Amino acid sequence: MQLRNILGIVATGAALGAMSVAPAHADTRTLAGPTTGDSDTFLTYVGCDGVFTAGAAPQSRINLGPYSAPLGRRSLGIVPTGGGSASGPYSSFTSLAGVDASLSVAATAGSQGVSYVVAITSDSPAGTAWAGRAPVTAPAGGWTQVSSASLTYDWSLVDLGSRRQVSAAGSATPADFAAEHGDGAGFVVTGFGCDARPFNLDAVRAGGSTFDFEGLSLTTAISTPAKQVAAGDDVTLTGRVADGSGRVTGDPLVLESRTGNGAWTPVGGPQLAGADGLARVVVPVSETTEFRWHRPQSQYADEGWSDTVTVTVAEPVPSEAPDKK
């Protein structure tokens, strides 16, 4: 899974000035990957030297932790493909003075990053925008919350046509800069990975919404071609794991069985899926038995079970006694 590139989104002052955000939602949105489904808040990557410099797309995956995730049990892991790029959330805003974007970040070896704010205000000349840059750090050992409202940015006036600096404008928080130069619309990007070290993101907050990375919702199904057999016959049990779109994922499964009102017990170890994405086990059945598949917990999904199927062992038909003569 990869993140969305923002280069080219803001090519002119008109495009930046027309930015808006949807009405605020005081909600939590659970995500199964880097795609937010929101045009005003999404995950992206930029260069660490400047917001308009090219960055390299990282790899991403959902995983448990690390440590104790700020929301739920999982977070989004980011693996940079090299140094010099920062990956994290982009969020547009209508008020520089009221920017409230934040995120939580964890890196077992620590991570260096950068935050950018770009805005057009009442005193930025036509064809220009204010661009602020602030270095950010995630120390090793736990989760760190980073809020754009509390960061002090080094500001400059940028020509949007050439994307070159026109002049420096000092250092200030977004609210303090807006108080001096006027309020306006724009966007903020905060990312990590400038040192090429992997890190995790969670609890991304922007525009009144909170994004929680929790992984896939999977379903497991079981089937068998024979639900009534003679004692000792073999039965093939097939398991199928699929995501919400119906795509077969091929997750490993463990077959479980029980007879009567007994406890469920594993039938062998984990079964890997075949080329068709399905797991299969052939077992002999000596008495009527219930079967189900157990899907163990993974980095990207909670554990789960299939429905049960009952394989009935037919009672033998008594043979007729021979006639006595």
Results as ranks from 00 to 15, higher is better:
F192I: 03
T288Q: 13
A169C: 04
P266I: 01
A57L: 08
A230P: 05
A168D: 10
A18E: 12
T53S: 08
V189A: 01
T36L: 06
T288Y: 01
V311F: 06
Y45F: 13
S60Q: 15
S122F: 08
E214T: 13
T288H: 06
G82R: 11
L201I: 10
D123G: 08
L3D: 04
Y300P: 00
S148W: 01
V21R: 10
S95M: 10
V114N: 00
L151T: 08
A26E: 06
P58N: 14
A107C: 11
S122N: 07
L216I: 06
G268M: 09
A54Q: 14
A230V: 13
T236R: 15
S223L: 04
T289I: 09
A263E: 15
V114Q: 09
R73T: 05
P225C: 01
S167H: 06
G13L: 07
Q271F: 06
L237W: 02
T144L: 04
L157R: 15
T53P: 07
A314E: 14
N200E: 10
A26M: 07
G246C: 11
G244K: 10
S102D: 08
G8S: 12
S162A: 12
P284N: 03
L103I: 02
T35K: 09
P23G: 05
G274C: 02
A230M: 13
W305K: 07
P296F: 00
T236G: 01
L272Y: 15
R197A: 14
G83Y: 08
D49G: 11
S85L: 03
G98P: 09
P225Y: 06
A178D: 05
A275V: 11
S85W: 08
V317M: 14
E315M: 11
A230L: 10
P316I: 10
D233L: 02
V241C: 04
T289M: 14
T30Y: 08
D195Q: 09
A69I: 00
G98E: 15
I6K: 05
R292P: 07
A301R: 05
A22L: 10
L255K: 05
L160D: 03
G186L: 02
W130S: 07
P322V: 10
A175H: 01
T152E: 12
V114M: 14
S148N: 14
R295I: 00
M1N: 12
S39K: 03
W305V: 06
A97L: 14
A97D: 14
E287H: 13
A279I: 00
F42Q: 00
G50E: 09
T108L: 15
A178Q: 10
R29P: 01
D234T: 13
G274R: 14
F211T: 00
P270T: 05
S122T: 14
A15F: 03
T137E: 11
A119E: 05
P225I: 03
G82T: 09
I62F: 02
Q297D: 15
F42G: 00
T41E: 02
V105K: 00
T121L: 09
D100M: 07
S286C: 01
P89L: 05
Q228I: 13
S92W: 00
F291R: 03
A275I: 07
A263P: 01
A203Q: 07
G141I: 06
V283G: 02
T94Q: 15
A314Y: 05
